[in-house]
């Protein structure tokens, strides 16, 4: 059984086991991650009737997504995992959208600043696990047709990432002995800093 957290878009928290999603809370609000995360974790544990030390680990969406919210979920997942002495199971958030689709898909999420984040997936193999071919990458909204013009992929625009699916994917990967996702956040952008030159103040 896993706790699953994704804050790459809104805030989504779930408890999953091998039979499915036991409890889930999701808010599509693209702000308020820090406010919601604690109550959501506490509520899904209570609803699933599981104590923290009954969990095998903590699955977490590593992005891509707007940084400030994304970090809240990753920080919470790492701290929770530390608190129960179990591993963090990182997942590229787009993988959770592709998981469970039987066809080849193009996953698209908002990356703000007139850009979109996208990943391309082949149809899953016998194990049902998503096979990411390209991405996650950024593309300006105006240039999206460069990405969508590749034939054979069903476009899936995800407004929120479902922590239940993300957790089920992490569990399936764990059971299949598959590689874990990236251990660091998928920011896709360097910090936005410009070195300003001091302005003249003499009139």
């Amino acid at each position: 059984m896993l706790l699953a957290i994704d804050t790459s878009t809104g805030t989504s928290v779930a408890v999953v086991d091998r039979a499915g999603t036991r409890a889930e809370r999701t808010s599509a609000d693209t702000r308020g991650h820090a406010e919601l995360i604690g109550g959501f974790i506490s509520e899904v544990l209570a609803e699933a009737g599981v104590a923290p030390d009954g969990l095998e680990g903590v699955a977490v969406g590593m992005g891509p997504g707007p940084f400030t919210g994304l970090r809240v979920g990753i920080a919470a997942a790492r701290a929770f995992a530390l608190g129960i002495g179990r591993p963090v199971l990182p997942v590229v958030s787009h993988d959770a959208v592709a998981y469970g689709r039987s066809e080849a898909v193009l996953v698209v999420t908002d990356a703000r600043r007139r850009e979109l984040a996208w990943s391309r997936y082949a149809a899953p193999g016998a194990d049902g696990l998503p096979v990411r071919l390209e991405g996650p990458s950024l593309v300006p909204v105006a240039d999206l047709d460069v990405v969508t013009s590749v034939a054979g992929y069903v476009r899936v625009d995800a407004a929120t990432i479902d922590a239940g699916l993300l957790g089920l994917l992490a569990l399936a990967r764990l059971d299949a002995g598959a590689q874990p996702g990236p251990s660091e956040p998928v920011y896709l952008r360097a910090p936005d800093v410009t070195l300003s030159t001091p302005k003249k103040v003499t009139p």
């Binding site: 820090a34 923290p52 809240v72 919470a76 701290a79 929770f80 995992a81 608190g83």
Partner: peptide, 20 residues
């Protein structure tokens, strides 16, 4: 700084819930 504070707040809440 809001974005910096949120890292601590998210982690602290999760740690508190995890450890009861």
């Amino acid at each position: 700084l809001a974005g910096a504070l949120m890292v601590g707040v998210g982690a602290a809440k999760a740690l508190a819930v995890a450890t009861g």
